Simulated scan of single mutants.
Amino acid sequence: MTSLPPLRARPDVSEFLLTRRSRPAKTLTAPAPDRAALEPILTAALRVPDHGKLEPWRLVVLSGAALGRLADLTARMGAARDLDPGKVAKAEAMFRDAPLMVAVVAAPQPSEKVPEIEQTLSAGAVCLGLLNAAQAAGWGANWLTGWMATDRDWLAEGLSLPPADWVAGFIVIGTETVTPPDRPRPDPARLTEWRDA
């Protein structure tokens, strides 16, 4: 069995986490990471808490014609559902304009020990892990969802997902064209309770 290195302070990692922020998807462009560059990012993203080692998630890497096909599907299904045209156009553009996208699929596993909510939270952790790993590698990244993430017909036709699976996040990855200003951040003092009794 391979042993883990001892824990030690990593100020560079702390600084990264304290200053990280998503890059708006509409500001990301090609080039995107190729397969060789993406594989270590995906490997890092999957190092998340996973109670019971169920691996209740999968990754679907989308690029090129696959993104165009999903954009067309989104436009067609959005119109058929009589959704707001502006909302449909925005969702369609999310796929059409992405240089690369990774769909993080929540795939809950039957378990008497691990409730589905824990598995869902683990899938969310993969999304954040993917964002952080992409940005740590020098790429811009953004976590998106939209109505498509839980629409059964869209998921079946678009990603061939079985009925229990859904998308926890569409992670767009590419080259950032602008560095966005930071936004106001939550105040830990306002949101934290300290209890010692």
Rank of each mutant, 00 (worst) to 15 (best):
A32R: 09
A106G: 04
A103K: 04
D12R: 12
L128W: 06
I173A: 07
R47I: 04
A98H: 07
S22Q: 13
G86R: 10
A137Q: 01
A136H: 01
A75H: 12
M94W: 01
W143T: 00
S3A: 15
P110Y: 01
G140T: 06
K53H: 15
D97W: 01
V178G: 01
L121S: 01
N132G: 02
P49W: 12
V88E: 12
R10Y: 05
S111V: 04
A66T: 13
L73G: 10
A133W: 04
I171D: 03
F16R: 08
L18R: 15
Q119H: 03
G78K: 08
A136R: 00
A197N: 06
L161P: 02
R58T: 13
L42N: 13
K90E: 07
A45W: 07
G158N: 06
A36K: 14
W139D: 03
E193I: 01
V60S: 11
P40G: 11
R190C: 06
I41N: 13
R23Q: 15
W194V: 15
I41W: 09
W154R: 00
R23G: 01
A134Y: 02
P162T: 11
W154V: 02
L42I: 10
A137M: 00
R8A: 15
A133N: 05
D12G: 11
R81E: 13
S160Y: 00
S160L: 01
V102C: 08
L42Q: 11
L191W: 09
